[in-house]
């Protein structure tokens, strides 16, 4: 449990798919070209005639999960869950851009920035927060569908929306990977079927599987050394004399 959990509580029913959040984020965070740190998913309308066709738009971004699969896929801890804020951070100085974390996110929230060649994703606009501003996407939203704040702080609007009990709260997860996301949707949201199981690259899986083996070999070697050392201490250098037999 983190002390603070900065999170978004989203009324996706209020989203009109205007993409202000997407462009605002791209400008604020210098997200290049076709990439984006956030998105609006859409529930395609059903024209089969069984129901009135309608659409639902679902804003999203990194969900700053409690059990982030991206963190598990990072060998160095460059991606980590900051326990002070609840944000899944990327230490850009430590990240070398190996790309392990990108398929490991079930939500496609990460991309490898072609300019910095490092992993990138939503970090709730730290520079703006430091200046007392909301994250770029929250600030600019025409229908104020995104509510941002510390959900562990009873005074925050996000907490109140989340904990008031007035609205059912849903998260978007898939059956294979439940990362315990901190992106909450009010009432209901759609689409719900777009997330993917987390994919940890084979190289990382191999590294994890080989770790006990490597540790075993080092351990065996250590044991051998200990045996030799033990013998040396117990038997002394008698072996030297024995070795001298072949003189």
């Amino acid at each position: 449990m983190t002390k603070k959990q900065l999170a978004m509580v989203i009324d996706s029913g209020a989203c009109i798919d205007c993409k202000a959040c997407v462009i605002s984020c791209k400008v604020a965070n210098k997200v290049p070209g076709a990439f984006s740190r956030n998105w609006i998913k859409e529930q395609a309308p059903d024209f089969s005639g069984t129901a009135r066709p309608s659409m639902h738009f679902q804003p999203g971004a990194c969900m700053h999960c409690d059990t982030p699969t991206c963190v598990a896929a990072c060998p160095t801890g460059a991606t980590y869950k900051d326990l002070e804020t609840g944000i899944v951070e990327i230490d850009k100085g430590l990240c070398i851009g190996c790309g392990n974390c990108i398929p490991a996110c079930p939500y496609g929230a990460r991309y490898r920035n072609p300019e910095t060649c490092k992993a990138d994703k939503c970090d709730y606009c730290p520079e703006r927060r430091a200046a007392g501003l909301p994250p770029a996407c929250v600030d600019t939203c025409p229908t104020k569908a995104r509510v941002f704040g510390d959900i562990n702080d009873p005074m925050s609007e996000a907490h109140q929306l989340l904990k008031s009990g007035k609205n059912p709260i849903v998260t978007v997860v898939n059956e294979v990977t439940d990362t315990k996301p901190n992106m909450y949707y009010l009432d209901k949201t759609a689409p719900g079927d777009w997330t993917e199981p987390a994919v940890v690259p084979a190289s990382m899986t191999a590294m994890k599987q080989l770790t006990p083996l490597v540790k075993g070999i080092v351990g065996l070697s250590g044991l051998g050394v200990l045996a030799m050392l033990g013998r040396q201490l117990l038997v002394g250098d008698s072996h030297e004399q024995e070795e001298n037999h072949h003189d």
């Binding site: 070398i96 790309g99 490898r112 191999a206 770790t211 490597v214």
Partner: peptide
């Protein structure tokens, strides 16, 4: 990046 990722594994092993 798969080359990088495997390099990490190989480096470690």
């Amino acid at each position: 990046t798969w080359i990088v990722s495997w390099s990490i594994t190989l480096h470690f092993v």
